[in-house]
Amino acid sequence: MTVKPNDFFFGLVEFLAFIVPGMLLFATLPKIVYAEVPDYLTIIGNDQISSFGWVCFVLLSYIYGHFIHHISALLLNPVYNKTVFARKKKKHLHFIEDAEKSIAKELPEHTDILRIADAYLRSKQPSLVSELEKYEANSKLFRSLCLLCVYLCFYPNLEMAGKITLIVLSLLCFSKFANQRWTHRLVVYEYFMILHKR
């Protein structure tokens, strides 16, 4: 029997948005807070880790990843909305307004235009799911990495050059997050408009 990641409810979005950032946090947090971790959960420098240790590590990383995801959304989504989204929306105002009017007309019972349009496309055109998930997963990954880069500046004995590098990486991650988040919205609206002009 072939076991696939989806059998454990881990798809592309879950892996990139939660597990990868969670692994980074879980592997570095004990050093920052000077806490001891049981040997079976020590991944770095441990050649004898068991299958049970790996399973625990992945599950705890998934849980940690949800915390990072929530915090980064609270902190960075408002920044994105007031900067990149406001600028991009102004540039593409005519198309965005037309698309949102079409979505609201087709699906008037929902107020979250982007979410319902995304769900509509997934149900009507399953072949688009992988493309939509790619942008969603990438945006969530880089949003979390943006916050994690700042967090890693507090890693013990980190040189100033390392901290500067992490700050630069954080800014680059925010830029990538903003790009993928905007592209996801644009692609959803484009596909919705194409679908309804057939």
Rank of each mutant, 00 (worst) to 15 (best):
E14L: 06
F15K: 12
F15L: 11
A17G: 03
I19W: 11
I19V: 13
V20W: 13
V20Q: 05
V20M: 13
P21Y: 15
M23N: 04
L25E: 05
L25N: 00
F26K: 04
T28Y: 14
P30L: 08
I32S: 12
I32Y: 13
I32T: 12
V33Y: 13
Y34D: 14
Y34H: 15
A35I: 06
A35H: 13
E36D: 14
D39G: 12
L41I: 07
L41C: 11
T42F: 09
I44F: 14
I44M: 11
G45V: 09
S50H: 14
F52Q: 14
G53D: 05
G53Q: 03
W54H: 14
V55A: 12
C56E: 15
F57G: 02
F57P: 01
V58R: 05
V58T: 09
L59V: 05
L60D: 00
S61V: 01
S61L: 07
Y62N: 03
I63T: 07
I63Q: 04
G65Q: 08
H66I: 06
H66Q: 09
H66W: 09
H66Y: 15
I68T: 01
H69L: 12
H70T: 07
H70C: 04
I71C: 05
L74N: 14
L74T: 09
L75G: 08
L75D: 11
L76Y: 06
N77R: 15
N77G: 08
N77P: 03
N77T: 10
P78G: 07
V79T: 07
Y80T: 00
Y80R: 01
K82W: 12
K82D: 07
K82C: 05
K82R: 15
T83A: 02
F85T: 00
F85V: 00
F85W: 09
R87M: 12
K88G: 02
K89N: 11
H92L: 08
H92V: 05
L93R: 10
F95N: 09
F95M: 13
I96V: 12
D98M: 12
D98N: 15
A99M: 04
S102T: 05
I103F: 14
